[in-house]
């Protein structure tokens, strides 16, 4: 379980998140909506542990441990993984090498790459000259190799062409154990109960909702979380009345 308690975060001198409360139980996936600059990426980066995001108040717990001051790699080892929107390029580090790093050498990189239509990129330097969609597929490949329990997705559908959006959406759905296939001899309900993976997905366009079912949606607006509700409903409202009105109405 991830628990974010009354979190307050500064980036430089500027307070960018205030009084954030969030709880993601095992098996739950949450969608985070919000306009540009509302602090969505900052929240993900803070949960991941990026040191430039200074927690000035509040706490973050994951799997019953206080991770508020843990380093990024400690959090990664505890089971938090992130798919970045704009990851850095690293010259000389091949995509297949970073996938191996993620898995601790325990994965067949070639098979994994085939499943994401990404074999041609394995020998390319990671993220160097990748298009938006290529970055997403590379990030997904790394997450699958890493196999975390809490998956943070920063706009997984942005820059992805129509041909690949289904591939990406369905892969995320499978990663979050939400692909609705029943385990042999079990009901849908039982299968759902067995879910352990937690997800927090930032979306701008909402396209991802066509592929991934989510339990809750929330809107982050000017550093404040609001409107906890059914994600599809929220998305509809945002489309109809806009973020500002949506948040006003809820508070």
């Amino acid at each position: 379980m991830l628990i974010v308690e009354d979190l307050q975060v500064k980036l430089g001198d500027k307070e960018i998140l205030s009084h954030i409360d969030l709880e993601i139980r095992p098996g739950e996936t949450h969608i985070l909506f919000g306009p540009n600059g509302s602090g969505k990426t900052s929240l993900l980066m803070t949960i991941m542990g990026y040191p430039q995001y200074k927690v000035t108040a509040g706490k973050i717990f994951f799997k019953d441990e206080d991770i508020t001051h843990m380093t990024i790699n400690e959090r990664a080892r505890l089971g938090i993984g992130m798919s970045y929107q704009r990851p850095p390029s690293i010259h000389g580090l091949k995509t297949k090498q970073i996938v191996k790093i993620c898995s601790g050498n325990e994965i067949n990189v070639n098979t994994l790459a085939e499943s994401l239509n990404f074999s041609d990129f394995l020998d390319r330097d990671i993220n160097v000259g990748f298009s938006g969609g290529e970055i997403k597929r590379s990030e997904l490949m790394q997450l699958i190799a890493q196999n975390p329990d809490l998956l943070l997705f920063d706009e997984p559908e942005s820059g992805v062409d129509l041909e690949n959006i289904a591939l990406i959406g369905n892969t995320i759905s499978r990663l979050l154990e939400r692909d609705h296939r029943c385990a042999p001899g079990k009901s849908v309900k039982e299968t759902r109960k067995e879910r352990t993976k937690m997800g927090l997905i930032i979306t701008h366009t909402g396209f991802i909702l066509d592929y991934v079912t989510a339990d809750k949606g929330q809107v982050l607006y000017e550093g404040i979380l609001a409107c906890k509700s059914n994600p599809i409903e929220i998305f509809k409202q945002i489309k109809e009345i806009g973020y500002e009105e949506c948040v006003r109405c809820a508070t």
Partner: peptide, 27 residues
């Protein structure tokens, strides 16, 4: 940001630095 990216994949800071250096030198 390259070091932090690799740390988020599970490497500690020294391992991340070494990985980037190795990449830098691999021509």
């Amino acid at each position: 940001d390259e070091i932090l990216y690799l740390m988020s994949r599970g490497l500690n800071e020294d391992e991340a630095t070494a990985t980037i250096v190795r990449g830098f030198l691999s021509v």
